[in-house]
Amino acid sequence: MDPRPLSSLTPGSKGVVASIQVPPAHRARMLEMGLLVGTPLEVIRFAPLGDPVEIRIRGYNLSLRRHEADLVLVREA
């Protein structure tokens, strides 16, 4: 299946990060938090107001905004 933006996945779906298109300056911290190409992730939920999204990577829970989640492409498992 073609990679899809993280923001378009439904809660409960799992996948692997295929590419990260966030501009370099903003990418560094994402990488350091463990969100790398090849990292398996699970979408946990969206906040009640629709943003941000909570995901589970590397055994912990992280939330990021749709704005960035749009730029993280995920290959669904």
């Binding site: 903003h26 911290r29 994402m30 938090m33 941000p52 829970n61 939330s63 905004r65 960035e68």
Partner: peptide
Amino acid sequence: PPPLLLELP
């Protein structure tokens, strides 16, 4: 704004 990366411990 820079990206939000908020840990939910």
